[in-house]
Nucleic acid binder design. Structure first.
Lengths: 114, 114
DNA sequence: CAGCATCCTAACAGATACTG
DNA sequence: CAGTATCTGTTAGGATGCTG
């Protein structure tokens, strides 16, 4: 009888699952994308550059990304208010990983077209 | 005035988004994990090795993974029925990418503990 | 043994309007 | 300018029981 390795759901402290949660959600990748393309952006610049996003989703997605530690939020107490967002250092280090992921995705798309 | 690169939601044919969808969902990673640890497994072996999963979720997750092309399903027409699941070739090539992802996740966990 | 059908709930996401 | 608040719709996931 073969010995089967099990997986307990308690193990979802698994680093892959953890990393995945950080970028899951409809708007996280788009936000990361425009930030890595443009560097630092203000709230309204982000909003304009991500077509279709609402204030609610932009705000909550940014907050989660900030809490995850991959987006910086800098608030200037001016009138009118100014808030700038950018990728953190570890946020930037995610990019090459996503690139590998993209390559694999491309292969998969290629295979499915056969 | 700076030129801002935009992101249209229509672009979600983006390979990263595509790849992400394939492994999203509560049970996909656990399934991939036990398959890569054990090689080929039968339906009930999978069920036993993933604690807490229901028949419905196992069935639908396996079907999606199969449709994505990263899991093989082989049905033997015997009595009692036997169905075996394993990773496809491209499914196996996902593993090193997930490994990179895991390393990044570990770093992030490390940073957040500081 | 390997599943499918049905019903149910909770989390996610969108629309709209309002505020410091 | 940079968000909140509220209300509503949609989808993911779960419980339970049944079938070839």
């Amino acid at each position: 009888m073969k010995e089967i390795k099990t997986f307990s759901i308690k193990d979802d402290l698994c680093p892959v699952g953890f990393a995945l949660k950080v970028i899951e959600g409809k708007w996280k990748l788009p936000i990361l994308w425009v930030l890595c393309q443009n560097g630092t952006l203000r709230y309204n610049e982000l909003k304009k550059s991500i077509l279709g996003i609402t204030n609610m989703m932009l705000t909550s997605s940014l907050k989660e990304l900030e809490e995850s530690g991959i987006v910086n939020r800098v608030q200037y107490n001016e009138i009118p208010p100014r808030v700038e967002y950018s990728l953190t250092e570890i946020g930037n280090r995610l990019l090459p990983v996503l690139d590998e992921f993209a390559k694999w995705g491309q292969e998969l798309i290629g295979i499915k077209k056969l």
